[in-house]
Amino acid sequence: MTIRMTTPDARALTDVIGALRVWQTEASPIQLHPGDVGWNVRFGEAETAAALRVWSGDAGILAVGLLDGADLVRLTTAPELRTDARLAGRLADDLDGILPEGTAAVEAPQDAVLHDVLGARGWRRGEAWTPLRRDLAEPVQPVALRVETIGPELAAARAEVHRAAFPNSTFTAQRWGMMAAGAAYADARCLLGLDAQGTPVAAITVWSAGPGRPGLIEPMGVHPDHRGHRYGTEITVAGAAALRELGSSSAVVATPSANVGGVATYLAAGFEAQAERYDRTRPLPAR
């Protein structure tokens, strides 16, 4: 099998998103999702394409990696290739060229043999994450929080909540517009929660991978001035309801295990915690 690694252009984003959609199944662990790519499109389609690495063979796309910052690659493969040692070796070789020298990290599905290959090369177990899942076979209960579906008229309010919830964020209404114009957003919803006075207090974006496949929460945030009122739980439940309407079989999310409050919010919203997963971290060379 000939394996080629390429950096796609913006025109190829639809193909990459299509492959990621097909790879999402209830039998697979949480992995790189089309919603992860769709959320990145807030920076622009050309910028997102430049952050992608695609490994292809004669049968099509074999693996996809998304550079999330300078020193992290979020990577997945076709499910039937998770145990392919040849592909895992090629991915490990290429990661050394993709990532900068020194400390770096790789996020990959926990059932991928890539973890073993990287471990044999000195990559250590890195940050612990808690995956959570809510089954959507049954209707989702309504919430008391007023919830609006975000369009251009509410984009600024949604961006303001996000920047407050994530202080280092540069999200703006303009970037929401770029995200919403992307191919992945055709199967997504952005929701804004408002309190009894009409003040925006929470927001969530959810991404379907198509009917019968797991949908992703990326991201969810509560304005820090309005925490402690269950708004995070209620906007998460509303997001799960939106995914069910889009045909998703489940709602999934992963948050750092150290984020105890975040894990508690998802549990309160009817999610079940799965076995912890870990990044792989390349340490600095010993002096």
Rank of each mutant, 00 (worst) to 15 (best):
D116G: 15
G18W: 01
R21W: 04
W129G: 03
V113M: 10
R90I: 13
L132K: 03
G198P: 12
A165K: 02
A165I: 02
G262Q: 08
Q141N: 08
L145D: 07
E272I: 00
P139S: 09
V252E: 11
L52D: 13
E218V: 00
I150H: 04
W176F: 15
G97W: 11
L32V: 06
R227T: 15
N168Q: 13
P79G: 12
I217E: 06
T76I: 08
V73G: 07
A240P: 07
V206L: 03
P211G: 04
V73M: 13
R74I: 09
R163I: 05
V22F: 06
A128D: 13
P219N: 08
L154N: 11
D93F: 09
V206G: 01
G247C: 09
R53H: 15
P219W: 03
D225S: 14
M220T: 12
I61Q: 08
A105R: 15
S248W: 00
A164R: 10
Q141I: 01
D58N: 12
T103K: 13
G177V: 00
Y231C: 03
I150Q: 03
I204V: 15
E153W: 03
D68E: 14
T103G: 11
D68C: 10
V143N: 10
A19Q: 10
L75N: 05
G69W: 05
G60N: 11
D71I: 00
V252Y: 00
S250W: 00
A273G: 07
D187H: 07
E47Y: 08
A240R: 00
D93L: 12
R213W: 06
G119E: 14
P100G: 11
R227I: 13
E127Y: 06
V73H: 07
D71M: 01
V222N: 03
E47R: 14
H229K: 10
A181M: 04
W129P: 00
Q31D: 12
A104L: 06
D187Y: 00
A144P: 03
A27V: 06
N40S: 15
A108P: 05
D36S: 14
R53K: 14
Q174D: 15
E245L: 04
R133C: 04
G193T: 00
G89Y: 03
S56K: 09
Y185L: 00
P79N: 13
P79M: 07
H115P: 12
V73N: 07
Q141S: 14
L67P: 01
A85Q: 14
R90Y: 07
L192V: 12
Q141V: 11
A273D: 09
C190H: 12
A120V: 02
D111K: 01
G210V: 01
T2K: 10
E276G: 08
P152V: 04
Q197C: 12
G122W: 09
I17P: 02
A70Y: 06
A88I: 07
P214I: 01
A70L: 11
V54Q: 08
L191E: 03
G182L: 02
P283V: 02
P152D: 15
D94N: 13
A242H: 04
L99Y: 10
E148D: 15
T255A: 14
